[in-house]
């Protein structure tokens, strides 16, 4: 508690940031690839905390990720943006049927389309 923040590890600082972002019970939480810069162990831990805290507080959350597994396993809805529009929006059964492989395919198609423009 009395330790300087600068002395903590990346994972610890991100966990503290998560606490700070949610401590005042916000209506909305935005997560911008918040585990991408952490080592795998810390990333998993922070992701677990994210799931727990958002569930406990029922915070509306948007989480950007590049990890197809995370994208499908966390939360209840997945959207994909391309060229400034929502090009895919799945939830419920449709989302359950989706595999990360198929999702990656869609993702790369979107990218090809963009490069082709």
């Amino acid at each position: 508690m009395k330790t300087r923040m600068g002395l903590l590890s990346g994972g610890q600082r991100q966990a503290a940031s998560l606490l700070m972002a949610t401590i005042a019970k916000p209506r909305l939480l935005l997560l911008d690839e918040h585990t991408a810069a952490l080592d795998p162990g810390a990333a998993d831990k922070v992701m677990e905390l994210t799931k727990r805290i958002t569930a406990e507080q029922g915070i509306t959350t948007l989480m950007v990720t590049h990890d197809m597994d995370y994208a499908l396993s966390i939360g209840t809805r997945t959207i994909m943006l391309s060229a400034g529009k929502v090009v895919m929006d799945i939830s419920g059964e449709e989302r359950e049927q989706m595999t990360s492989g198929h999702l990656a395919e869609l993702f790369y198609t979107a990218r090809q389309k963009k490069l082709g423009q």
Binding site: M1, M20, P26, E33, H34
Partner: peptide, 25 residues
């Protein structure tokens, strides 16, 4: 609105204690 970025350094003030950071938030 709360926000977390990819860079874990963005959300916290390094020269202040953990407690002080939490208190400001």
């Amino acid at each position: 609105i709360g926000c977390l970025y990819q860079n874990p350094l963005r959300g916290t003030a390094p020269d202040m204690t953990i407690e002080e950071n939490l208190a400001l938030a």
